[in-house]
């Protein structure tokens, strides 16, 4: 498969009065056409920042300070604003966490869809309207002919998220960045939205970068997964390998920390402490203060992702040949 998106050594910085914060540090990943890449991590790990950098929606003063982002071999991280606007929506769609804030409350959902369609596709107004109805039908909204004339507040949370998905798919982009698309929804609605997203992307061959903190959603949806910690990729690989045979001690701890139905354990695996703040990232491996298998090299030298099993893991222990860390 061809590489649709390539991110090389991406670095995102936030200059502040007290010094520069590095939110994303040396992140490299790629997404193939039609593939679902999950990006997981705890809050502050830099997963949303990576997504925002790719679609060029970093909030100032945040800025890309290094590395490159290539879409189908073409650099998009240094494009002028207008050129990036043409790509956003047309080639890269976006779905955000809160469906209420990503729709304009003052416009009917049909008008918002038509606007997006006319911006990106050479269609007449009548054709665009017909397409808007078709899109709403595709995302499973009942009686779409009437619903196009409704305002966002007339939709429930799950239905709104369907409208947002319709908007993201309006111009048939090749890649969708979905940032916590189901976090604000109840489990039964979450299941509906995930299977909808899976079905549509499969039908249209759209690649998805699925950013979430929910490992269950990743397990069910993603082909490959990247685990982020303190702005860096700790581990990346095929989803089965990362979940069943995690290599990085952080991933091992994370998997044990997730309570699971049918798993009878008295205590969950506990990773003591919490993720370092961006202004206090320790020297060496950022995970070293919490790592159960830390040794002297981890305290001084930062590991880069290195081959481990079928994926990559940024851990000196892995390079030492330990199959996976004892926790």
């Amino acid at each position: 498969m061809s590489q649709l998106l390539e991110v090389n050594h991406l670095r995102v910085e936030f200059p502040t009065r007290r010094g520069t914060l590095v939110a994303v540090d040396d992140v490299s990943l790629h997404i193939d056409a039609g593939e679902v890449l999950g990006v997981v991590g705890e809050s502050g790990a830099g997963k949303s920042m990576t997504g925002a950098a790719i679609i060029g929606l970093l909030e100032p003063p945040g800025r890309i300070a290094g590395g490159e982002i290539l879409l189908e071999g073409r650099r998009i991280d240094n494009l002028p604003y207008a050129a990036m606007r043409a790509i956003r929506g047309r080639q890269i769609g976006a779905i955000f966490q809160d469906p209420l804030t990503s729709l304009n409350p003052l416009y009917k959902v049909g008008d918002q869809l038509v606007e997006t369609i006319l911006t990106h596709l050479p269609l007449s107004l009548a054709d665009a309207k017909a397409r808007a109805v078709q899109l709403l039908e595709d995302v499973g909204i009942p009686s779409p002919g009437e619903r196009v004339n409704h305002y966002p507040h007339q939709f429930s949370g799950g239905m709104r998220q369907r409208v947002v998905i319709a908007l993201a798919l309006a111009a048939e982009p090749k890649l969708i960045i979905a940032d916590e698309p189901t976090t604000a929804l109840d489990v039964s609605i979450q299941a509906q939205i995930i299977s909808l997203l899976k079905r549509l992307c499969h039908e249209k061959g759209t690649a998805v970068m699925l950013v979430t903190h929910d490992m269950g959603v990743i397990a069910e949806t993603a082909d490959r997964v990247a685990v982020m910690y303190a702005g860096r990729i700790a581990e990346i690989g095929p989803v089965q390998d990362v979940i069943k045979r995690p290599k990085h001690p952080y991933t091992v701890g994370l998997m044990g920390a997730i309570p699971s139905m049918g798993m009878d354990v008295e205590r969950l695996t506990q990773i003591d402490g919490s993720m370092p703040r961006l202004n206090a990232i320790p020297k060496g491996c950022a995970f070293n203060p919490r790592c159960p298998v830390v040794f002297d090299r981890c305290l001084v030298e930062r590991p880069d992702p290195m081959p481990a099993g079928n994926g990559l893991a940024a851990c000196w222990r892995v390079m030492q040949g330990a199959e996976h860390a004892e926790v």
């Binding site: 979450q190 299941a191 490992m215 397990a219 997730i258 139905m261």
Partner: peptide, 11 residues
């Protein structure tokens, strides 16, 4: 509800 929950084993 039980059916709707994504679980790690359900890849």
């Amino acid at each position: 509800l039980l059916d709707a929950i994504p679980d790690l084993d359900m890849t």
